[in-house]
């Protein structure tokens, strides 16, 4: 935990420095009387750089007990995030209804490892519900189906 925090603090400082230089060179600061687009970004960057250092120092000085790490799965958040990205992409290419159906099936299979029967019923029911609610009742304009274009 401590190493991870130190890394983040360092990154924060570096990001702050980068923002400062971007604001200085690209956006231009203007003057105190008439600040330009880079004025506030520069201040924010400077503050971030300082805070990152302050955090590092604080980490250096405080000693604390590491809580025993709970066993956690890193692959489930990752796979679900990847699925969601694929879903966003599929929505435009495949169409809303088909991609929603496929997404829920994939989620149940990959993230939850459900049985097929349950997977399919959840997928169909939720897709139908989404269609009824958003398209039928609320008239949200969704991307149309690929094979209907």
């Amino acid at each position: 935990m401590k190493l991870r925090e130190q890394l983040t603090a360092l990154l924060t400082s570096l990001a702050g420095v980068w923002i400062m230089s971007y604001a200085w060179i690209v956006l231009k600061l203007g003057s105190i009387h008439v600040p330009d687009a880079g004025f506030l970004p520069f201040l924010c960057g400077a503050a971030l750089a300082v805070l990152g250092v302050a955090w590092l120092l604080a980490l250096h000085w405080t000693k604390r007990k590491e809580a025993p790490a709970e066993k956690r799965l890193w692959h489930r958040p990752l796979s679900s995030l990847l699925l969601m990205i694929a879903y966003g992409w599929a929505m435009e290419t495949l169409g809303y209804i088909s991609s929603t159906l496929v997404f829920v099936i994939a989620w149940q299979q990959i993230v939850e490892k459900e049985k097929w029967a349950k997977t399919l019923s959840i997928a169909v029911l939720s897709t139908l519900a989404m269609y009824a609610l958003f398209v039928h009742l609320l008239k949200v304009p969704i991307p149309s189906e690929f094979f209907l274009r």
């Binding site: 879903y87 966003g88 992409w89 929505m91 149940q108 993230v111 959840i122 989404m130 949200v140 969704i142």
Partner: peptide, 19 residues
């Protein structure tokens, strides 16, 4: 969880109709 994802996805899409 997946149902929340479905709702947020269409909700966010509907604000400006953009993926």
């Amino acid at each position: 969880a997946p149902v929340i994802v479905l709702f947020t996805t269409i909700g966010v899409y509907s604000t400006q109709n953009q993926v």
